[in-house]
Write a protein that binds this DNA or RNA. Structure first.
Ligand SMILES: NC(=O)c1ccc[n+]([C@@H]2O[C@H](COP(=O)([O-])OP(=O)(O)OC[C@H]3O[C@@H](n4cnc5c(N)ncnc54)[C@H](O)[C@@H]3O)[C@@H](O)[C@H]2O)c1
Ligand SMILES: NC(=O)c1ccc[n+]([C@@H]2O[C@H](COP(=O)([O-])OP(=O)(O)OC[C@H]3O[C@@H](n4cnc5c(N)ncnc54)[C@H](O)[C@@H]3O)[C@@H](O)[C@H]2O)c1
Lengths: 212, 212
DNA sequence: GATAAGTTGTGAATATATTCACGACAATTG
DNA sequence: CAATTGTCGTGAATATATTCACAACTTATC
């Protein structure tokens, strides 16, 4: 079932965005939408949107646009919105706590099921309805979880990563500045907030004017 | 001085990463580094690293590698590490508080100077050494700040953006799911955490095995 | 039912980014 | 000082992504 390996990465990264926006349209009772309208709302060129959709076949109708409900149903299946993906969070500090309180509950198929920390002051509490366990219990509790959010101090990142991989995790959303090393069947997405901020500032200074 | 518009965007986004890693090497007392070593550490192909550096001229020596101190000095200038860029943060909630406590203090040229919120319970306090003002004071206090981090509820995003633009801000790091509309001389970087998590899950399921 | 307006899907063109592969030179070693 | 090893810088090849531009079709209008 998986591996329609012909969807370009750039397209795949936009899919959740499309899904969320279509969901909003649906809630607003809209039944029809054009690539032009989508483009204005999510700031992606309309030709890019049509191209993205076309990888999945002909989802629209010429001269009409796209049927919101149909498209939404299609993306729901494509993005596996029906099967839930449990996620664990490691490191209940500033960032970790923010994520637990938020917990991606709006229209998502992902939910943080449990969190781990080394600090006894945090262990045993519920934060945002998620239980916080001691990091020593990682191996015994992570038996069914394949995805993790990493928000520990950078010094701990590689060591915790190794333990996560050992438990069978194969996707990590890494917020630490460490470029962690993993086996090649584990997927890591880095979100490096300090780099994002610095890069914004660099672009502001060196690429004036034109939106790109 | 600015607008050496020949540095590719993909390269520009990696510069802060290079800078941070070179800084670490320097602190460790290393004086020499090769593109291969850099590659192993930050997981960017060594040819890409050499290509990136080459846009700035010949910074290395054949058969030798790069001199850490020289390269670091070069990037310090390129990334304007000496002039400080003040930043404001709008919305002192879960995420906003995490950022204030962290405040990008490690080796950076960026610092959050002030924060704003609409909630009187938050106004008047210092969080992570940053004063929190009422959002009504935005216009009078933002006279010298050109960059903002946006962590308000999605419903407020566009309205606050308009006010920020009005005060002269030309760079926004937007954490809300809203794709905000700005004049074309304002740069917006979206960091959409829900999309990042969903896209990680999508990749895990549909692009098994190979690291790419 | 003819005309006008709107929209898709996609071939082709273009733009951007990565990677290969190698000549040229530096440093080290015996 | 010759041989070996390591490394850069970059032309060329390849890969990936975006954008243009238009035939084909739908819908709405009169
Ligand atoms: N907070 C931010 O705004 C921000 C911005 C950029 C990057 N980061 C990065 O995100 C990561 C987390 O940042 P933070 O501000 O939340 O840090 P933090 O210090 O507030 O939180 C780290 C948490 O990890 C826990 N911890 C430490 N060692 C552990 C271990 N071995 N096992 C399990 N838990 C452990 C600590 O008890 C703490 O609760 C850091 O790597 C930081 O560099 C944070
Ligand atoms: N926390 C997360 O993990 C997370 C994840 C993904 C996206 N986001 C997005 O980031 C944004 C912030 O999330 P959060 O969890 O920190 O929300 P939050 O509700 O905890 O914080 C929002 C803050 O904005 C303040 N605020 C409301 N209206 C304002 C106004 N008009 N002017 C100034 N301040 C105002 C509120 O008082 C509050 O302190 C949201 O848009 C959310 O969708 C958050």
């Amino acid at each position: 079932m998986p591996n329609q390996h012909k969807i370009p990465q750039a397209t795949a990264k936009r899919l959740p965005l499309y899904y969320r926006f279509l969901n909003n349209l649906h809630l607003q009772g809209k039944s029809r939408v054009s690539s032009k309208e989508l483009s204005d709302a999510i700031k992606v060129d309309s030709a890019t949107i049509r191209r993205d959709f076309s990888y999945f076949g002909a989802l629209g109708k010429k001269g009409y646009g796209y049927n919101v409900e149909y498209l939404l149903g299609f993306f729901r299946k494509t993005l596996d919105q029906d099967e839930n993906t449990p996620v664990a969070l490691i490191g209940v500090g500033n960032l970790g706590t923010a994520f637990l309180n938020y917990n991606f509950t709006k229209n998502n198929n992902t939910r943080i099921e449990m969190a781990f920390d080394a600090d006894m002051g945090k262990v045993g509490h519920m934060i945002g309805n998620v239980p916080v366990y001691h990091i020593d219990e990682l191996e015994e509790r992570m038996t069914d979880i394949k995805a993790a959010i990493l928000t520990v101090p950078v010094s701990e990142a590689q060591q915790i990563t190794d333990r996560l991989v050992e438990t069978g995790v194969n996707g990590i959303l890494n917020f630490t500045p460490a470029r962690i090393t993993v086996p090649e069947d584990v997927r890591v997405h880095h979100i490096d907030l300090a780099v994002e901020l610095q890069s914004l500032v660099y672009f502001m200074k060196h690429y004036p004017l034109d939106q790109e």
